[in-house]
Simulated scan of single mutants.
Amino acid sequence: MARDPTIAYVLLRNAHFGPRLASAVELCVRDLVRHSRYAASTLVVCPNVDRPFDGIRIETVPDAPLGGNLAKAWGVGRLLRRLRVDLAVVENHLPVAALIASASGAPTILHSHAYEKAPSGALKRTARDFELRRIAGLAFVSEDCANRFRSNFPNAQAPMRAVPNGLDMTEWSDSVPKETTILSVGRGLDDKGHIEAMAAIARLLPLRPQWNARFILSAIDREPGIVRELRNAAAQFGDRIRIDTNLPYGEVKAAWEKAAAGMVLTKTPEPFGRTALEALASGTALMASGLGGLAEVCGPDALIVDPADPDGVARGLASLIDAPGLRAKLARSGRARVERLFDIRAVAKRMDDFVDEVLARRG
């Protein structure tokens, strides 16, 4: 019987492959590996972490005193060659993926969670085309992400697939008693729409004493003015608006499962939108901007508003929190949508099938 292929998922840059500070990318990798039919022969190469996710073999990114991520990428490629890895899946960075492919000799899939910008100028176009020729497959977190890549890189020849984030729906509950809380989760950046969410909440709470709000923010050092502005706006409400930062993933999950209403108001197109997925999985009635990949996550099962229209956001939130029937309807349909389209078993199978296709093409 032929052995299962040895697969390496590669996380560089500021990745934290553990439950304390994992981002959407690390959580996606964890879930794909745990539910892969090749889980026993898969490892994750990542920066050193104090407490990694349980049950997954990791190898630490080799040190590279000089040269930054590209030097680390070369070291990772050499490590994969020594480990005789059959295929690498590199998260998010085309030049790094191309370098790892060259150094390892293994077919390499670029797994993109972001919009890859079109190259500007002939020199950059030549460089990107050179790198793409080394890539054996391209996986994207949404069809929107894949379509933008096709438009920006018309010369790409590698097979492409959309493989979204998934959730293990046996671990997500919509039966936890709901609290009259409005929840907004994400990085503490202007683009994430927390300021717009806060403005709507501040307009509505004075006349709805039974409701409160909570913000759970990460990456708060990148735009500290945003967090400061949120705290200033919340101050007048005392403990009715709570702002937490850099919570472990388990606490974020528990917060979604308790919240009656959620807001994901990203102001520019989102490649995917894992926070929206988690809200829907929790049976939280969701209001979202619906831009980019968020439209694929939410479909018709969230209330869609324009974050640039403060009156519209406030009206939408009022309709959500004042209508228990609407909340219940969205909670049911949102949960069903995730079970139907984003259960991790189906998503992991999609990635495994793509791995098989790439390996077969390299034959």
Score class of each variant (00 low, 15 high):
95 P>T: 08
350 R>D: 05
94 L>G: 07
164 P>V: 06
84 R>K: 15
203 R>M: 11
254 A>I: 02
85 V>M: 08
59 E>F: 02
186 G>C: 03
208 R>L: 12
302 A>R: 01
107 P>W: 07
224 P>T: 00
212 N>Q: 15
99 L>Y: 01
280 L>S: 07
128 R>M: 11
150 R>P: 08
121 G>F: 02
330 L>G: 11
300 P>G: 04
254 A>M: 09
291 L>S: 01
67 G>D: 05
185 V>P: 05
303 L>C: 07
345 R>E: 11
185 V>T: 04
156 A>T: 12
111 H>Y: 14
94 L>R: 02
46 C>Y: 10
173 S>Q: 05
270 E>A: 05
188 G>V: 00
61 V>W: 11
97 A>E: 11
29 V>A: 08
58 I>G: 04
211 W>R: 10
273 G>D: 10
300 P>D: 11
271 P>V: 07
26 E>V: 10
165 N>R: 08
286 L>G: 05
248 P>H: 05
12 L>V: 09
78 R>I: 05
351 M>Q: 14
220 I>A: 09
242 R>Q: 13
259 A>F: 12
79 L>M: 02
283 G>T: 07
136 A>E: 14
101 A>N: 02
355 V>I: 15
193 G>Q: 00
230 L>S: 04
306 D>Q: 02
251 E>I: 08
149 F>S: 08
241 I>D: 09
219 A>Q: 13
2 A>I: 08
283 G>D: 06
211 W>H: 12
17 F>L: 12
147 N>C: 06
242 R>G: 08
239 D>Q: 06
363 G>N: 12
253 K>P: 00
331 A>D: 08
126 T>L: 08
285 A>Q: 03
